[in-house]
Each structure stands twice: as C-alpha cells, then as structure tokens.
C-alpha cells in the first residue's frame, strides 16, 4: 500500500485505505491507552486506583499532587545540590573560557545544576520510600549495562568472525538469559548466589542484571556487524594502525548505533526488572520496580502512578530527543529525511 491515496482510487480502494487507517489507529490506541489512563489517575486525591466521582466531575477537589509529594519526599538536599552544581558548572565554563576561549556559559551551568539537583536529592538521604529505590536503580542499571555492553560487544565481534568453533552452542548459551523463563532464572540465581554469598549484595544484583541484558547486546551488535565491511579494518591495518587503534577509530564508530541500541535494551531490562531482583536482592538493593511491586501488593498507593508518569515523561523526552538528533544528523549529512 502506498502512503498516499492516488487520485484515481476506486470506492472500494478508498474504503480499504481509510478502514485500514482506522484499524491501525485503534491498535495504536490499544497500545497507548494504559499509559493515558495512569496520568490522570496519578493526580487522584484518594489513595486508590479509582476514578472518583469528584474526578469525573472535573472538580478540583478530586485532584491533588500528594502522590508526587509522596514520591519525592522531603529528605535530601536538592537545592544545595543545585546551587553547588550550578557553581561548579559556572567554574567549568570559566575554565574552558580561559583555556580555549569557548564562551558557552548557559549549558554547563544548566547541566551542573541538574546534576547537582539529582545528586543532592538522591544521595543526601537514607531509607526514603521512593528516592532510595530510585537511587539504587540508577546505580545498578548503569553498572549492569556497562558490564553487558563491554563484554557483549567484544564477544559479538568474536562471533562475527568466519571461523568460530562451536558457534551454534556458544550462541545458544549467550542468548539463554533471554530464553529461560524469568522465574527459573530467578530461582536458580537465588539458590546459587546465596551459596556463594552474592545474594543480597549490590554485586549480586548487578551481575544478575548484566547476564539478563547480554542477549540484547549480542543480538543488536551482531546485526550491525553483518553489514560491516572488513576491508575497512584491513585498510586501517595496512596504513599502519595497530588493532586497538583500528578498533576504536574504525570499527567502533561504525557499529556504535548497534552498541547504543543494545545498551538501551540492557539498561531498560535492568531498570524495569522485578522478578530476579525480588529474589537476588535484599533491602539494601531495593530498586524502583521492587518498590512498585510492593506498592501494588502490600500498600494501596497511587504513588507508583506518579512514579510511572514521571518515568513516561522522561522516556517521551528521551525518545523525541533521539528522533530530533537523528533528523538533525541526517540533515547535516545531506541525506534526505525521507
């Protein structure tokens, strides 16, 4: 089907064309509906997952920000962090100006302030109901991602060579964390990590999540390597570059999109993972999904909806940023945006 209806289209063709769009629209609605539901509910003035009569009447009484207040809590030192971050950012800008003559001032200050705000809010407290799990998630997910991306990229490069003995078996093992049902992985890791003293430690959770993220890295990176032209590395080598230089200067930039996308999958695997962390972790490693799970099961609290709304907003922001950046780079490279 073409994306525009040709002017000569028959009636049947027209019905089919618009009918198909309507069906697709409905499916998109199905995909997005649960997300649309949680946003208004997160402003519920009550402690239940219910649209109250007040909310349906659009009575301001029925709405409140209390779940957001609960989510953020009032511990920590966000403003102090913001101030320090802004000052550091300004200092950095000044240094750059003195050193290289660059006159960016707004961006470093903004980035510094934002960074300081987050650090001040999350690291300045202990045992806060939501901020501590958020901090744990923000520590565990990047570490797990780093592990699975670095090891996974290396292995994917190895796997893409022509003569790899036992390739099928190796691939099966590396993909297995995605295949094995989570409950089995969780139980196995629980028993095994207990025995070696990793259960209930940061490292235990990081290792477990890294293992779960590996298949995504392998799959995306090998996919990009399929289209990789080996003569480029040979050209680099013949021009006198050593293998390490070749890797970072030639191969890496070309497979980077695959690595980044694999890394994103690995990150979200860890950031959204609840079954394994429930088993492998303990109180000290309580992550955001864990807190959401207990929030759903043990306490009735729409705070998780506030948390979700914030996370959804962040992912919309990120996804659109990525899309805008992609378009910009295409424009810069002179490619048509299609």
């Amino acid at each position: 089907m073409d994306h525009k209806l040709p002017p000569y289209a028959s009636t049947g063709h027209k019905i089919w064309f618009y009918g198909f769009r309507v069906i697709c629209g409905l499916i998109f609605f199905f995909l997005i509906a649960p997300i649309l539901i949680i946003i208004p509910l997160s402003f519920n003035a009550q402690d239940f997952f219910t649209f109250t009569p007040e909310m349906l009447r659009l009575d301001p009484e029925g709405y409140s920000l209390k779940h957001y207040r609960d989510f953020f809590g009032d511990d920590g030192y966000p403003w102090r962090g913001l101030l320090i971050g802004a000052v550091l950012g300004a200092g950095f800008a000044g240094a750059m100006w003195a050193w290289k003559g660059e006159r960016y001032i707004v961006l470093p200050v903004l980035v510094g302030a934002l960074f300081g705000l987050i650090v001040g809010k999350l690291w300045g407290l202990d045992g806060a109901e939501w901020m501590t799990p958020l901090r744990n998630s923000l520590v565990i997910a990047p570490m797990a991602t780093l592990l699975s991306v670095s090891l996974g990229t290396l292995a994917a490069i190895g796997l893409s060579q022509t003569h790899v003995p036992f390739k099928g078996a190796i691939m099966a093992i590396l993909i297995s964390p995605m295949i094995v049902p989570l409950i089995i992985s969780a139980a196995g890791m629980y028993f095994f990590y207990s025995r070696v003293g990793l259960q209930g430690t940061y490292w235990g959770v990081v290792l477990a999540h890294a293992a779960l993220g590996i298949p995504f890295v392998i799959i995306t990176v090998t996919a990009t390597l399929v289209g990789f032209d080996r003569s480029l590395t040979r050209a680099a080598a013949s021009l006198g570059a050593n293998p390490v230089t070749t890797f970072f200067k030639i191969q890496m930039p070309l497979i980077l999109p695959g690595v980044i996308s694999g890394g994103l999958f690995a990150f979200i695997t860890s950031f959204d993972e609840v079954v394994v962390v429930l088993f492998v972790g303990s109180a000290g490693q309580q992550t955001l999904p864990w807190q959401m799970f207990t929030g759903l099961r043990e306490q009735i609290s729409p705070t998780i909806l506030a948390a979700a709304t914030i996370l959804v907003s962040i992912s919309i922001l990120l996804l659109t940023t990525v899309e805008i950046l992609r378009r910009r780079s295409e424009r810069l490279r002179g490619m048509s945006p299609g």
């Binding site: 190895g158 060579q161 028993f191 293992a211």
Partner: peptide, 25 residues
C-alpha cells in the same frame, strides 16, 4: 582470536547464569 574475544563473556554467562540454572535443576 575469535575465541579469545568470546571467552570473557562466555565465562561470565556460564558462571552468573548457566551454573545457577543447572544447580537449581
């Protein structure tokens, strides 16, 4: 060389993932 590149990850997955599963089974 290919195996050397794969080995660290393979070892990692075997220890952190496959061994626990076998242990449980």
């Amino acid at each position: 060389r290919a195996l050397m590149l794969i080995a660290p990850l393979l070892l990692f997955v075997l220890v952190t993932f496959v061994a626990p599963i076998i242990d449980m089974l």
